[in-house]
Design a binder for these strands. Structure first.
Lengths: 333, 333
DNA sequence: TCCCTAGATGAAAACCTTTTCAGAAGCTAT
DNA sequence: ATAGCTTCTGAAAAGGTTTTCATCTAGGGA
């Protein structure tokens, strides 16, 4: 591997000068600059990133923390982040976390050893130690899809409760009164979306019956399927279902179909997220759209701004959500 | 940040000794070891990875090259790789490549600057320079889902042609004779799967009509949808469609549905890949299963073996594929 | 002529580790 | 007592950069 010293020797200058050329510092004669540049090109030399990181004590790398089995929503989010972080001149280092304490511990250890310039969380952690460590080290950070009031970190998210209410309200407007809810037991957004469901019912004077809400252990289609199956099995009549995520909704539709019930003729289904695939289910999924791309961009912008300015005014960015009408909801009467 | 020197000072020993303790070298008194360990724990010290990489000239990091807009198949593949690479004690560094020459150039530059211990490609590159560079540097590498005979790199893949033939044969066995094909224009596997389609027809003496094959610019549902739409528009009758990937198949089903045609009653659809979501479409997608998880594992194993043994016997691992029967194919007669 | 300044360059230190080499201390065998 | 092992430890070099500080040159003003 050719190093800066080799280039220096070949150009008949010192390593310092080569470094100055490479980093576009002033104080180097045009003629010398050109000679160095020529040799760099000829030798195909590029700076060694590891050595550079060490001396500069920054790595031009932003960490992104995401669940190991990230869902399609998170996948779109992180593609967006990676895109904009690259635009800002940063590399992205992903940390795939299992949902366990040991995984979070391992992550904390790695975080201490790694030289990250900033970090974005797409995944709410249980272990407060990690947030504390980040705060002490005043490592630039942004939270995406959730917030942590007690730490005052910048965050981008939607109003989970209002978005769920929007979905359920949409069903009620179309004449539905007996509405089921499938949500997850983990993470704050699951509870918040359930709260939104209740609020919508209350706002229209519909009584809440607990049997119509089911909490499943995860947010994927398989969980949605089993959730819907148990909703079908219970006694109460049901004309529509609110699924806390699109993936749950996709599983719910599958379960209905398997049970010989038609969507939306027999049961209407509405989701929340608007992931790419929701436009391609049959029937197309009516859902509430999160501006995924913009949220990813904003998260990237926030960390980069923090790094550039060396501080950030406490800032929580709340994005608005909108109904996307497709074919999975039927209008009654 | 506390460094090895701080620990050494506090323990009243030299940095060398601390290093020996940390790396579990022999020749350090049990009593000294314990004292150092205690202080390490107390201070929460962890080795600085950047400095360590520099002196060891290895980073314990494997690069994974994947398209920027990776599909669900690739997503499952890389989750599997990340999992097994971690088991082998390696971190994973992703490189998301756009489908452009400049993106490949930028990647090559980065590759030269980065200190990677190995690299896995889930994405076939056009630029041979990159493969050449890897070969010259004798960087441990594995190809996944394709191969490059001329470089003799280890590779894991399926027999694309045979798998497509399997799918189309399945349709023919069920009485279908007028079978459409939706495939992509890019990447070798698209052409190979098309060849498999043709081979199946030929094997059963069914004449090949070019109007029944459409090539779309990408492999996602939207492309599948437009492909199917143009297949519907043409004159030839059609009782079944082979889509070169599951995502294409999902889009095809959508298009049929939009056009008032029922799957499988009016038209049967078969895919290839067996991605997670294919179990949750309505109707469930009949498809050909690639053992995605195992392929990811094998790729990880191959690079790690190369690194460990410092060489590898030329090795191409071909996985077998199997039909997964769901509801999207109807038996005629 | 002399001094001062600005521009250009290089030597050396620093970043944080690991590893080599040499030396010290405590044994055992002669 | 000496030589020769083992076991343990520290000093110093190395890895590839950037940056500080010092030096040198040339040009301008007094």
């Amino acid at each position: 591997m050719t190093s800066i010293k080799d280039i220096a020797r070949l150009a008949g200058v010192s390593p310092s000068t080569v470094s100055r050329v490479l980093n576009e510092r002033e104080y180097v004669r045009a003629e010398v600059r050109q000679r160095v540049l020529d040799i760099v090109k000829e030798k195909g030399y590029v700076q060694n990133h590891v050595a550079r990181s060490m001396v500069l004590r920054r790595s031009f790398t932003i960490g992104v923390v995401i669940p190991y089995l990230f869902n399609m929503f998170q996948r779109q989010l992180f593609a967006s982040m990676e895109f904009f972080l690259e635009q800002h001149g940063y590399k992205t280092q992903f940390f795939f976390l299992r949902w366990s304490d040991s995984s979070e511990q391992a992550f904390l250890r790695r975080l201490k050893g790694e030289t990250l310039d900033g970090i974005i969380f797409i995944h709410e952690l249980d272990n407060p130690e990690i947030y504390q460590y980040i705060q002490e080290r005043s490592l630039p950070v942004a939270l995406c899809t959730f917030e942590k009031r007690e730490f005052g970190f910048p965050a981008v998210h939607i109003d989970e409760e209002a978005s769920a209410e929007l979905a359920v309200d949409y069903l009620i407007q179309r004449g539905h009164h007996s509405i089921g809810c499938i949500t997850g037991e983990h993470f704050s957004f699951g509870r918040q979306r359930e709260d939104g469901y209740k609020r919508a019912l209350a706002a229209h004077g519909i009584s809440y019956s607990p049997e119509l809400t089911v909490r499943v252990p995860s947010y994927n289609p398989e969980a949605g399927r089993t959730g819907m199956l148990s909703l079908i099995r219970q006694k109460q009549p049901l004309s529509a279902v609110f699924a806390a995520t699109d993936e749950l909704a996709i599983g719910a539709i599958k379960a209905l179909c398997e049970s010989g019930l038609k969507v939306p003729e027999d049961v209407s289904v509405i989701g929340l997220d608007d992931i790419d695939i929701s436009a391609f289910t049959t029937p197309g999924l009516t859902t509430v759209r999160q501006p995924i791309f913009e949220m990813g961009k904003k998260s990237a912008d926030l960390v980069c701004e923090w790094i550039a300015r060396d501080h950030i005014q406490e800032k929580v960015e709340s994005f608005t959500t909108t109904i996307v009408e497709r074919e999975s909801v039927r209008t009654l009467h």
